[in-house]
Computed example of a mutant assay.
Amino acid sequence: MKKWSLLICIVFVAAVLAGCSNGASSKNIKLAYVAWDSEIASTYVVKEVLEKKLDYKVELLQVDAGPMWAGIADGSADAMVAAWLPSTHASYVEKYKADVEDLGPNLDGTKTGLAVPTYMDIAAIDDLKKADTAKSLNNQIIGIEPGAGIMMATEKAMADYGLDSYTLVESSSAAMAQELQKAYDEKRPIVVTGWTPHWMFAKMDLKYLDDPKGAYGGAEQIHTMVRKGLKNDQPSAHLFLDQFEWTPDDMAAVMVEIQGGASPEEAASKWVEDHGDRVNQWLKGTE
């Protein structure tokens, strides 16, 4: 009987220890992101550092913008590095600000708006109202995923500038860029929802249409958002995410590698390997 009691105690202790190892102390992180070229670049670099430098197991959750914010707010995701502020994601901030922790900007110098090839003889959003311009564009503005902040801003811009004859075409970031590239190669007119940093501005001669009414706001930043409680559960991951910041040129370098045929994993790994000093700054104090 004593032997059975001892065996039961050993099994119980082992179960408790196993539970502890899979609980708050386990090094698992869920990163939410939208499949925009810019956010693919940043998210995969963050994943690379978490896995290779801090020994975390990272799960990537590719979602639309709304579910990305909701996931951080309800704790089903741990972090995201894709909050465009103050304008693009203003509605999500208003809805979820009490339920997320803002770690501040990870990138300065972003911009959103309507973009066209420089060979088009128009300069401002108002110019889209010209009958011949509208006809050449088939009365279409090529957009990305519905629910994205830039799509909501574009709907506002269309109302502000009286572009009633236009349709905002919903697609995806990849489909928009593909359509733009095809039109650019054929020197056809096209207008798209654009943002920088993005590889398309490095690969093609593009320009933003002037926005005197400020429908798209001014220059923006990309912020890192984490769920409440991450600092207590995963202090080293929280500190790294808080210290993660880079430049538009850094992000563009990763995007160009991916556009050139590298996988996101390969491009992120190369960038991290080539920028050891920067990565060490992000990791300061995490060990």
Rank of each mutant, 00 (worst) to 15 (best):
V49H: 04
L283F: 11
A262T: 01
I142K: 08
E170Q: 14
A14Y: 11
K27M: 10
E220F: 02
Q281R: 12
A77C: 13
D249V: 11
T43G: 12
E186Y: 10
G217R: 02
Q140H: 10
I40M: 12
V100A: 03
N106L: 13
K2T: 13
V100L: 13
K187F: 12
Q243G: 08
M251D: 10
I10A: 15
S42A: 11
W4K: 12
Q243M: 12
I29Q: 00
K203R: 15
Q181P: 00
G260D: 08
I72Y: 02
E273D: 15
Y119N: 00
A70R: 11
E94W: 09
L7R: 07
D74E: 14
A159H: 07
G218K: 09
E39T: 04
A65F: 08
Y208S: 00
S236C: 04
D78M: 02
A18C: 14
I40A: 02
M200C: 06
S172E: 04
D121G: 04
N28R: 15
H238C: 05
R188M: 06
W4D: 10
P235S: 06
S171G: 15
V254R: 01
G75K: 02
K228S: 09
D99H: 11
V16S: 06
A83K: 04
Q259P: 09
A175L: 15
